[in-house]
């Protein structure tokens, strides 16, 4: 579904991508893992037709991002690193706006359906400026689903969210994959990649240095040794147990 070959991109003298190769199969979730500044966002922006690569090719659903950007835009949806919502509009108005821009017939019905799916019906008439971070992210993802694009890019979907909101986003992403959507997400959280991704690609030094399923990546390391460690609950487990929303 997504095929990236030899992608290169520099900002001035700074070479961010030095030949990225990546394949994403239809209907799978691939996590692009990397530290801050590794170039994860740059890869997504090139795939989303927002940036031009210096070298290499990228195709989505068979369309080259450089030569067929209009077709690519019909195929994809990008949820950027910072929730791209309009604070001055209500949640419903944001959804209607995107539905109209995607030239859908029944924009209002589409909006109401998504508000219900994302548990935002009660907040639908309120201005987004009053939303919490988790609600914004949910609205942001809901806006990306309008028009049922077969490919969705999620750039650090849970950065800055509280544990509850993270769980909500994870559930959403899993539900999307079940409907057959191809998802490429970036993250710097190892547990997120482990939980969501069918395959994990590690971007480091401008290249993909490892790419495989979790089991395959584990095999790259020396065999597991058995140690006895007292199992302490993590702070996240404690937090979620106390507020009564354990995963």
């Amino acid at each position: 579904m997504i095929r990236v070959q030899g992608l290169e991109k520099s900002y001035g003298d700074l070479a961010v991508l030095r030949g990225v190769d990546l394949d994403v199969a239809p209907g799978s979730i691939v996590a692009l893992l990397g530290s801050n500044g590794a170039g994860k966002t740059t890869v997504l922006k090139i795939l989303a037709t927002l940036l031009k690569a210096d070298a290499g090719t990228a195709t989505i659903g068979g369309f080259d991002v450089a030569t067929r950007p209009a077709d690519v835009r019909e195929t994809i949806s990008l949820t950027g690193q910072f929730a791209a919502v309009d604070e001055n509009l209500s949640g419903r108005e944001n959804l209607v706006l995107v539905a109209r821009l995607r030239h859908l017939k029944d924009a209002v019905a589409v909006a109401d359906d998504l508000l219900a799916r994302f548990d935002l019906t009660d907040a639908g008439a309120r201005r987004v400026a009053t939303y919490s971070g988790g609600m914004r992210r949910r609205l942001d993802i809901a806006m990306s689903l309008i028009g049922d694009p077969p490919v969705i890019f999620l750039d650090e979907p849970t950065t800055g969210l509280d544990p509850q909101s993270r769980q909500e986003v994870w559930t959403t992403v899993e539900a999307l994959a079940e409907r057959g959507t191809t998802i490429l997400l970036t993250t710097q959280y190892l547990d997120e990649a482990e939980r969501l991704a069918d395959r994990i690609a590690i971007l480091h030094g401008g290249r993909i240095i490892a790419d495989g399923t979790l089991a395959e990546l584990k095999r790259l390391f020396p065999p597991a040794t058995v140690e006895y460690v007292e199992k302490q609950p993590t702070l996240e487990e404690i937090f979620l147990a106390i507020i009564g929303e354990a995963a």
Binding site: T49, A84, D86, V98, R102, H103
Partner: peptide, 11 residues
């Protein structure tokens, strides 16, 4: 705010 990027990644 990133809303322009959203519009630009859309048709």
């Amino acid at each position: 705010s990133g809303i322009f990027e959203r519009f630009q990644s859309m048709p």
